[in-house]
């Protein structure tokens, strides 16, 4: 790993946790990502904004390799994702090694994707037991703690179908946290929720950010972005249009595309 890092000048020593350079991705000749650069420092919260089809979700999925990238490089905590670099030549990692890289990254999906045949606590304890080989008892105790932390300590034995959308998403966050990830990815975590359930999920995410978790959040929740994000990245058409502190990007956008998007989003919020 050190040899690889030395051979790759684009990888500085005091690295950010996530370091993405010139990431490209196409689906059937349709270029979805056209060279994305993004650095996320430890403890930072980055919100990805942009119209649908701008590539934000794809980029998020590329970070933990649910999609393979066509070009560019992504490092998470100094590890090149999906490949190993030996003397300037890239070798694809085996599925097992990719799975090991994913363990460091938690992901929360728009549609929760809880395991419907398992109770809340089984959902949370599943990966520690099955992936990290923890024994049942401590894993369940920790799962209980995590469910307490997201405010669902009393719903341990409920199946996902017996929980509201907001509760399911909070269980999903607890499930991702159970692997003690360095980085949390949120893919529109509140978009599938009824409006009155959005707040409880955002509150959990806010606490997580305050506890110093590094987070990349694809969202349309402007208020959350304004209050919690350290950096807001506005994407459109597969490129980063502008990025910076929320007060700059949201308060004083420099690009016409950003302005148009923000205006449209605001009017949608005022007249739903």
């Amino acid at each position: 790993m050190t040899a690889a890092a030395a051979a790759e000048p684009a990888e500085p020593l005091a690295q950010p946790l996530v370091h993405a350079v010139n990431v490209t991705k196409s689906f059937h000749h349709n270029e979805v990502l056209k060279g994305i650069d993004l650095d996320v420092d430890r403890g930072q919260v980055v919100c990805l904004l942009g119209p649908s089809g701008s590539g934000k979700t794809t980029f998020l999925r590329c970070i933990n390799q649910l999609e393979t990238i066509d070009g560019g490089r992504i490092w998470v905590d100094g590890d090149l994702m999906g490949y190993v670099d030996r003397d300037g030549k890239l070798y694809r990692l085996k599925n097992k090694e990719i799975a090991a890289q994913r363990r460091e990254i938690g992901m929360v999906f728009q549609r929760f994707n809880l395991f419907p045949h398992k109770t809340a606590i089984e959902n949370v304890a599943e990966a520690p037991i099955q992936v990290r080989g923890e024994s049942r008892k401590p894993a369940r105790a920790r799962a209980q703690e995590l469910l307490d932390r997201v405010g669902l300590g009393d719903r341990c034995t409920s199946y996902p179908a017996q929980l509201s959308g907001g509760q399911q998403q909070r269980v999903a966050i607890a499930r991702a946290l159970a692997m003690q990830p360095k980085l949390m990815l949120f893919d529109e975590p509140t978009s599938a929720l009824d409006p009155e359930l959005v707040g409880e999920v955002l509150a959990v995410m806010r606490e997580l950010a305050e506890d110093g978790m590094t987070m990349i959040v694809v969202t349309h929740e402007m208020e959350f972005a304004r209050e919690v994000a350290d950096t807001v990245v506005f994407m459109d058409g597969g490129v980063v249009v502008e990025s910076g502190p929320p007060r700059d990007v949201l308060g004083n956008p420099q690009h016409q595309r950003t302005k148009t998007f923000l205006t449209r989003l605001r009017s949608a919020h005022e007249h739903p």
Binding site: A99, N113, Q130
Partner: peptide
């Protein structure tokens, strides 16, 4: 649903698991 396999992969499970 494909999301089930994705969620499991994202937790770092091997394809057999």
């Amino acid at each position: 649903d494909k999301g089930q396999a994705e969620a499991a992969q994202a937790l770092g499970m091997s394809s057999g698991k």
